[in-house]
Design a protein around this nucleic acid. Sequence first.
DNA 1: CCTTGGCACTCTCCCGTTGCGAGTGCCAAG
DNA 2: CTTGGCACTCGCAACGGGAGAGTGCCAAGG
Lengths: 347, 347
Amino acid sequence: MSEDRRLMVLRAIVQDYVQTSEPVGSKALVERHHLGVSAATVRNDMALLEEEGLIHAPHTSAGRVPTDAGYRVFVDRLSAVKPLSQGERRAIAQFLEGAVDLDDVVDRTVRLLASLTRQVAVVQYPSLTRSTVRHIELVPIGTSHLMIVLIVNTGRVEQRVVDTGHDLTVAEGEALVSRMRTAINEVAAGVPFTAAATRLRRIVGEADQADRRAFESVVSALADALVEEREERVVLAGQANLARSGADFPRSIGPILEALEEHVVLLRLLGQLGDDPDLVSVRIGSENPVTGLQSTSLVSMGYGSGSERVASLGVLGPTRMDYPTAMASVRAVARYVSEILDDDRST
Amino acid sequence: MSEDRRLMVLRAIVQDYVQTSEPVGSKALVERHHLGVSAATVRNDMALLEEEGLIHAPHTSAGRVPTDAGYRVFVDRLSAVKPLSQGERRAIAQFLEGAVDLDDVVDRTVRLLASLTRQVAVVQYPSLTRSTVRHIELVPIGTSHLMIVLIVNTGRVEQRVVDTGHDLTVAEGEALVSRMRTAINEVAAGVPFTAAATRLRRIVGEADQADRRAFESVVSALADALVEEREERVVLAGQANLARSGADFPRSIGPILEALEEHVVLLRLLGQLGDDPDLVSVRIGSENPVTGLQSTSLVSMGYGSGSERVASLGVLGPTRMDYPTAMASVRAVARYVSEILDDDRST
DNA sequence: CCTTGGCACTCTCCCGTTGCGAGTGCCAAG
DNA sequence: CTTGGCACTCGCAACGGGAGAGTGCCAAGG
C-alpha cells in the first residue's frame, strides 16, 4: 500500500516542482494535492524516496526536488501522455498546412514545436542516406559546365555544378545532356541512395567513348552528393525559451547554447532513439551523454514518409519540464509531419 | 586643442570599457594610455564629455561608461577599420572555399562570422526579388503532376509540385513537358524576377489550346514563387556568445533571443543599410528601432554577386562591442562571399 | 586660460551578524 | 502505520560598518 502512495507523492512533487520551480515541502504538498494523509506521513514517504534516490533536498532544511531518476520514474510509470485538445490539433494542422516546400515544412515545424511547448525545438532534416532518388535533372550552363539537380523522394533538392571537360556547341550540348539524363535516370530513379551510387558508376563504362569524360564528371559529382554526410542538418527554434525557463537556469544557459550549436552532436543525439519508432523517447539530464546538456532533457521521436522514419524531431528543455505536454506535442507534430511528407504536395 | 584631446579621452574610455566591461575612471585611464596629461585634466574633460552626452556615470562615484552617442562618435570619427591579419584572411578563404552549394555557403558564412567576432552572426539569404531566373526545369511526377524547379542566378533553388489538370500517358506527358520547358525558358531565362512573372503570363495565351490548362497551372505556380516573400530568410549562429558577452548582459539575454527569433523584423533591419553599398553600416543601441535589441548593436553590410548587393550579413552584440574588429570581419566576409557567389562553382 | 596636485565627499561593494521562517527528523501516542 | 508535537537546522534577507575607488572643486603654477 505504502509503495503506491509513495509514488503518488513522487508524482505530486514532480508536478508541483515543474509548476513552481521551487523545492516542495511536505506541508505545501498536502495542501495542494488532497492526498488523504497528513504532512508527517508525507515526510516519512519523502525520507524513503530520498533513500531510493528519486528525490533530493538541496539543503537540510529545504523542500525536495526530483532527481533525474525521479523524473525517469515519473515519465515511465506515473504520467499518461496527455492528449491534445481539439483546438491544438487543429492549430497544428492549420499551421503546417500552408507549407510550400520541404524547407518550409521543416521551418514551420520547428517553430510550431517551440511555441507549442515553450521549449527549444529541434528538427532534423529528412536524411538523404535513407532516401531514394526521385529524379536527376541536368541543366547546361554555358558551353562547358552543367548543373546537376538531384531530387529526393522526401522533396529535398541538392545541386552541384560540374565542369564536363567538353566544350560543345549549344546543339551538341543539348544532345549530350539528353543522353546522359536518360541514362542516369534509367538506372537511378526510384533507387535508394546506397544502391544508386554503385549503379551510376557502372554506366560510365557503358557510355559511348566520346561521352566518357562528361559521364565521369557528372557521375562522380553525384556519387559525392549521395554519400556526403553534410546533408545531415538540424534546425532549431525557441532558444529564447531557455532564458525564461527557470530561476537559476539563466546562469547555465551559456553552455547549453554552445552545445546546441554543435549540430553534429545534436544529430547523434537525435539518432539514438528507442527501439519502437512509434514511441516518444525521453532522455533525462545525466542520461544524456553530451557535455553542457546534462541539466536538460530531450523529448524526441522519429518521423518520416511512409512507414520508415527518415529523421527525428523533438524538444529540449530543463529537466524540470512538463513531460506529459511535451511528449504529447512531439508525438502529435511528428505524426502530422509524417502525413504531410506522404502527401504529394510537398514531396 | 582641448577638443582633440577630449576625443582621445573618449576613444580611450571606449577601448578600455570594451576590454574590461567595467566603468573606467580617470586614474586607470592615464595609467593605461600614455596621454601626456594628469588625471585631474582627464577628469575635466570627462565632465565636458558627460555634458555633451557622450559618456555617463552609473553612480556618483563610479567610472564612466560610453553612451550610445559616444559609441557613435567613436565609430564615425575615432576608429579605423582594423585590417585583418594575413592569417585571418587565409582562414576565411579556406573556410568558405569548401562550400558545395548555396545553403552550404550561407551556413559556413554565418558560422565563420560568429567565430571570428564572437558575436551573434546574421546572414540573409540572397533575396530572390532582386535576382534573375537562370533556368526553369519541369519534372513529371506520375501521370498528372509536375515538379517545377526554379533555378536562380544566385544558385538558389525553389521547387513546387502542381497538378497539371491533364492525365496523360508517359509519352504524351514528356512531349507536353518538353514544349512547356522550351516555351517557359525562352521568355524567362536570364530575366529578373519582376519581369519574369508578367512575361510568363503572356505565354499562356499563346499556347496551344490543348496545353492551356497545364500552362496555366505551371505559370501560376511560378508566378507565386516569384513574388512570394517567404524566400526572405535569415540564418543565425553564435547565440551562445551572448551568454558570455558581458557582466549584466546575461540578464537581458531573454528579450534579445526573442527578438532574434522574429526573422521578419531582423530582415527589415538588415534591409535598412546606409547609402553606400560598399560601406559597413553600424546601428548602435537605441538607434535601433526594434524592441529588445536596444542594448545591442548591429554591424552589417550588403553583399551579392556582381556589383549589385542582393542581401546583407552582419553581426549583432552588446553595444559594448569591439567595433573595429567587428567591422573589419564583416567587411572581409561580405567581400569573400560576394566573390564566391560570382564564381561558377556554386552559382 | 589651461593644467595640476590636494582634499573632502559620496557612493557602491563586501562582509560579518542577526532574526525569521520554512522544513525537517524524531518521538511518543493513537 | 499514521499523526501531532517539538526541537533543530539552515538558507536568506535585512542591517551596518569599513574600505576603496572615483569624483568635483579649489587654489596654485605655468
